[in-house]
């Protein structure tokens, strides 16, 4: 009976020793040695950095557009331009992160050869679905000139999606300016339209 009791006592003491060891193993920074055995919290830091940026691009399979003037079929009619090559629609894509309540806008201008008596127009649609955030407002149809014109305004933190059918659809047209019809000359002017995203405020 005494031997059995000794063994039982030894086993019990060993059992306590093992449990104490287990408590020590499970904790970093020496917590396992705490006699209180109560330290149920821990923490670490996390940092997120957000900087402003804006970027813009055009999508379209053929971005070299050509328009041709058709000779009037009936004497007395005005000249009419039709698109002869290039994509009939281009798509304005952009991404931006704004600071606070600040916003961005997109402007456009044309450079290149003189085209007196002709209006180069672009119709800027509202933003398509497929993006997210505070996309801007399309200006509708405007006449492009050599000075910057606002084509999209009120752009906050957003992205339109990248590619065709995403962002703002751009549809171009060329027409005679009736107030300056007399300035139209038989020629082949070549123009470049430049879009820029910039701070609006």
């Amino acid at each position: 009976m005494k031997k059995v009791t000794f063994l039982l006592a030894a086993i019990l003491v060993l059992g306590v020793s093992s449990i104490a060891k287990a408590q020590n193993n499970g904790n970093g920074n020496g917590n396992g040695n705490s006699p209180a055995q109560e330290d149920p919290t821990a923490a670490h830091a996390l940092n997120i950095s957000i900087s402003s940026y804006s970027m813009i691009g055009l999508a379209g399979s053929n971005q070299a557009l050509a328009f041709e003037a058709s000779a009037a079929e009936v004497a007395g009619d005005k000249v009419v331009f039709t698109q002869s090559s290039g994509s009939t629609s281009l798509w304005l894509n952009y991404s931006a992160i704004a600071e606070g309540e600040n916003t961005y806008k997109v402007t456009a201008k044309v450079t290149g050869d003189a085209h007196d008596g002709l209006d180069v127009k672009v119709n800027v649609s509202s933003a398509s679905t497929g993006g997210a955030g505070e996309t801007g407002t399309g200006a509708g149809e405007i006449i492009l000139t050599s000075t910057e014109s606002d084509v999209v305004t009120g752009i906050g933190s957003c992205y339109t999606g990248a590619g065709e059918e995403l962002g703002h659809e751009l549809t171009y047209s060329v027409s005679a300016n009736e107030d300056n019809y007399g300035d139209i000359a038989a020629s082949s002017p070549s123009l470049i339209v430049t879009y820029t995203i910039t701070d609006e405020n």
Binding site: T41, L46, I97, E99, G100
Partner: peptide
């Protein structure tokens, strides 16, 4: 996305209990 602002660095703590 519309609420994301270029607000620099944000530091905070994750606490576990």
């Amino acid at each position: 996305m519309e609420k994301v602002s270029a607000s620099g660095a944000h530091d905070f703590t994750i606490m576990y209990t």
